[in-house]
């Protein structure tokens, strides 16, 4: 499921356009994105990648083994950097070079 940091959200609407499930909408007089129902999130992370201010993260629900860690993405032309922030504050970065194929 995703969660949106309302303090960071700038209401640009990019996530609303990109969500394959039409799950996001702008509320509060179009200044902030809301998810209609996080239970309906597929976890594709399209919104996580497109958010220009990293206001959206993906989290594993408790029934999937999640404990509150947050997954963010920093997208650019050549790299996709994934950032995991664990509950204790530890940050883990995973960099995927878009110009390289996956080894597996």
């Amino acid at each position: 499921m995703i969660s949106i940091d309302r303090k960071k959200c700038v209401g640009c609407g990019k996530c609303i356009d990109i969500c394959p499930g039409n799950l996001l909408e702008l509320k509060n007089e179009n200044v902030c994105a809301f998810c209609r129902d996080v239970r309906d999130c597929w976890g594709c992370c399209a919104c996580v990648k497109i958010c220009p201010v990293n206001a959206i993260c993906y989290q594993l629900s408790a029934d999937l083994g999640g404990a509150g860690a947050k997954l963010f993405a920093h997208d650019s032309k050549t790299k996709l950097i994934w950032e995991i922030i664990k509950l204790d504050g530890e940050k883990i970065f995973l960099e995927v070079d878009k110009r390289q194929a996956n080894k597996f």
């Binding site: 976890g43 992370c45 993906y58 594993l60 999937l64 083994g65 999640g66 404990a67 860690a69 997954l71 996709l80 994934w82 995991i84 664990k86 883990i92 995973l94 995927v96 996956n102 080894k103 597996f104």
Partner: peptide, 17 residues
């Protein structure tokens, strides 16, 4: 890397748990 490119939840699960 492979899972981040198709199913990011799996990589998160490995690392988080």
């Amino acid at each position: 890397d492979a899972y981040l490119n198709m199913s990011p939840a799996q990589t998160l699960r490995w690392i988080e748990t």
